[in-house]
Amino acid sequence: MIKRIAIVIAGIVVIVLGRGFFFYSGFYSAPATEMPSYEHIVVLPAPSAEFSDNASEEGDRTVLIDLAHNNNFDMEELNVLMLRLISRGLTIKLLGVEDDLEKELLGELKEEEEAEIVQEEELAGEEEEEEEDVQENELVDEEEEEGDEEEMEEEELEEEDIEEEPKLPNAFIIVCPRLEFSQKEKEAIGEFVDNGGKLLLTADPTRHSDINNIAIEFGLIFEPDYLYNMKENEINYSNIFVAEFEENEITKNLEKIALYVAGSISSTDGGIAFIDQNTFSSVIESRKRLSPIALVEESKILAVYDLTFMSEPYNGTLDNNQLIANIADWLDSPTEEQEQEEPKD
């Protein structure tokens, strides 16, 4: 009986094995599957650093901010810089669409406007003469009294005019202009700089602007790129650190700054803050020593290719506040030409 059962079992085994061998050549051996762990994934924002701010409130300089060229920014974004300027006693003026850049920067009127004013004055003079002829005989006695009064009024008005005569700006800030500057405006800005005025040009790679329309006049090119660092960055690859500086008034006391989507500025020896070997341009591959900040024209023109670092809360990262304070100091300090013009006490 045992023999017969063994035969049955053998038959079963043969069939089962046969089917098994028909379909299978082996078994699936699962690889050691390591399930992901998420504990070590952390993001540490860069710390903020102490900074020294030479706020004095003693200055009498004026800064003009361009709002006449459909500028692609909100005034609140300049709050930090403006506060620094105000704390230094600087007066901030805004250049609106209705304002004349040439007049606001240089205090000069256009030739056409000057001709119009002369014409108006001549007409007014003729009218006055006619009126005087008609009334000459009737108001002889009163004339003398009125004449005295008019003279006094004119004197008062002249005094007021002298007091209210607007002070010309010492510095001009242009941020992300979307409208082109006319040839006359470019010439006026050029003359303003030649006379010792300071010019701050700022743009941001994330915003459309036609900054090169004016920047190129001074040998500066805001490249159509952004800078990135995959190895060491402030939360995101496009938020780069800059720690290599040329020594000057803009970079004093700076060890490391963070820029939030900055582009590179091309100039002839104008770069003052250079990217490290792990930072790259999204466009430029041939050059390595790129700078998002440039200072040219005997330190009278500063170009900065990032706007975000100037605004809250990004100004608090690393030495950004120090850089903003340095820019405010630079705008507050007179150039050689301005020192020669200003009478010393």
Partner: peptide
């Protein structure tokens, strides 16, 4: 019924039935 071929046949039939349920076509 007591011969060896019968038990072989039984074993094969049972084997087929078991194999079909135990080893389905992959």
């Amino acid at each position: 019924f007591s011969s060896i071929p019968f038990f072989v046949l039984i074993g094969l039939v049972l084997g087929v039935l078991i194999a079909i349920s135990a080893i389905p076509r992959p």
